[in-house]
């Protein structure tokens, strides 16, 4: 008998139960971060009691079937357009909780205009941005978020910044916009980081409930299949390499006074990077 079973039988305490909103086991590859993010999302919505008033705006990527795993009213978006779709949902139903769930190809490549303008307008929904630095679904091609030198199926000799540009720090970019009330980058790299990721996701929804503006949590994630690594090697790479290039932390939490310093109209000489 294991220790866990012992405790359960003796004291009748629940040690772990699948969040009710996570209706089915996910079918992601072993070691994929999407499953972890789904669970965190389900836990947060359940703890905040939001399951029955939330509308999930899906995207196109490996998480396209998120609606099969999360017991939420859901609408599919064309690739990259989730932030526009969510704008439509939330503007018509401001009383509902609305979120997009998007990969980095979806949000940081084809959907860049939609995410920037939704943030600029301060749309009052929450974005869960799962950045695995690659196009997972289509077979591991380079994304705008792919690290310099990283090999992918469309950068076989490693990403050459001279010809393909530099990784796009979308969350930092969005942090400059006054409409953004909350922006954080988290990671699923280890259990402590997962716990912090959950806190960030929870905070993002609290901000949405306050109705003040846009909230985004970027979650650095893994794609063992696309990265050509084992699940545990992927977690190591996420911690050692990816998190160095993409620092985690809270960039904006306006209600708590965390925000980058922006140039004020009339003082154009101030650096916009000062606050970072």
């Amino acid at each position: 008998m294991t220790a866990t079973e012992h405790v359960t039988e003796q004291e009748g305490r629940t040690i772990y139960r699948r969040p009710l909103l996570l209706s089915k086991p996910t079918t992601y590859c072993p070691g994929c971060g999407h499953g972890i993010v789904h669970r965190l999302l389900a836990e947060v919505l359940e703890e905040l009691g939001l399951g029955a008033k939330t509308i999930l705006v899906g995207s196109v990527g490996c998480s396209v079937f998120a609606y099969d795993f999360l017991a939420l009213d859901s609408v599919e978006s064309p690739h990259g357009r989730a932030a526009a779709v969510a704008t439509g949902v939330k503007r018509y139903r401001p009383d509902k909780v609305v979120l997009t769930y998007q990969g980095d190809g979806d949000l940081a490549a084809i959907g860049t205009a939609e995410i920037v303008h939704a943030a600029a307008r301060g749309e009052r929904f929450t974005v869960i941005f799962v950045n695995n630095g690659i196009y997972g679904m289509t077979g591991g091609q380079m994304a705008p978020t792919t690290l310099a030198g990283q090999r992918t199926t469309s950068s076989p000799r490693g990403r050459d910044v001279e010809t393909t540009g530099y990784p796009l720090p979308v969350t930092e970019m969005l942090s400059l916009l006054p409409g953004v009330q909350y922006a954080a980058r988290a990671s699923v790299g280890d259990p402590v980081l997962v716990g912090k990721a959950k806190q960030s996701i929870k905070r993002a929804f609290e901000i949405q409930l306050e109705g003040k503006g846009f909230s985004i949590v970027e979650v650095l994630s893994t794609c063992p299949v696309g990265w050509g690594l084992t699940p545990s090697e992927s977690m190591e790479r996420l911690r050692d390499t990816v998190m160095t290039a993409y620092p985690v932390g809270t960039f904006v939490d306006r209600p708590r006074g965390i925000a980058p310093k922006l140039p004020q109209p009339g003082s154009p000489t101030r650096s916009i990077t000062e606050g970072f």
């Binding site: 509308i55 357009r81 526009a84 779709v85 439509g88 018509y92 509902k96 205009a113 939609e114």
Partner: peptide, 24 residues
């Protein structure tokens, strides 16, 4: 009622998609 001047026609029709899904 809802009026949004979108950043593009792509965004406009996708906003419509979302609002329609919500019953508008």
């Amino acid at each position: 009622r809802v009026f949004v001047q979108a950043e593009s026609e792509l965004a406009a029709i996708n906003m419509a998609l979302g609002a329609s899904a919500a019953g508008a």
